[in-house]
Write a protein that binds this DNA or RNA. Structure first.
Lengths: 125, 125
DNA sequence: CGGAATCCAAGATGATACTG
DNA sequence: CAGTATCATCTTGGATTCCG
């Protein structure tokens, strides 16, 4: 089977993100949303329950956590498994696709943390 | 000279992004803002003038473009050079630091575009 | 516990007009 | 051209309440 992901050659115009109607924009919006980034990074360490994520991410309301998780689930990045017991037990994890974005996003956050000293030094005002 | 960027070992808790008061959150917010991402990617291709950026990014108001550029400039990612002529001529480019984040951000957008087929296929609803 | 629903405050974004 | 200022709006995000 040949992969169907067409590789973007280095110099290929990958300017499609600039196209307003491009679905990429929508995905990008979900991924880079305020809580999307944090949730993806958190899930990179493995399966988490709702309340675990809530504690780990910190300062996120139930509403936004649920909402963001639903978006990520819709985009096929997050897997939601509900155990029908009482009290309810729901587990969230990354799909293979989610692992992919997760790596990219984690690379970004890692870069920022690693370069934070330089950044803070270069900051004006 | 030895680099002062301490490398994050694979398993190191790089959970500092989760700390609410961490400056990383602020930087991350700017970088992943609606227009921050697009602007950084656009500038990866070289110096641009204000109106060039405006046309390239697309659908961005003057206000938001100016505002986001100021944030990125403050964070030390973008260089602003104003030629005091009439009509005004201002050029924006990436600083070395900006090139760093730019690469991370571009990696993310590239990944999304490359995997868009898979993503759209996996999407529910 | 893990949400859904509602209401409301705050912030982000946009359209327009004006200026150096 | 490259902004700034102002005002209108639209979207986010949070607090609260209720339910299975």
């Amino acid at each position: 089977m040949q992969t169907d992901t067409k590789h973007l050659s280095r110099k290929m115009r990958r300017g499609e993100i600039f196209a307003v109607q491009c679905p990429s924009r929508e995905i990008l919006k979900h991924v880079t949303s305020r809580w999307g980034v944090l949730i993806l990074v958190a899930l990179m360490e493995g399966t988490h329950r709702f309340s675990e994520l809530r504690r780990k991410v910190g300062e996120v309301s139930e509403k936004m956590l649920a909402q963001t998780l639903q978006q990520l689930e819709q985009d096929g990045f997050v897997n939601r498994v509900s155990h029908p017991v009482v009290p309810p037990h729901v587990e969230y994890s990354l799909t293979p696709l989610g692992l992919g974005v997760g790596q990219q996003v984690e690379a970004l956050t890692d870069w920022i943390e690693m370069n934070l000293p330089k950044i803070m030094a270069a900051r004006q005002s």
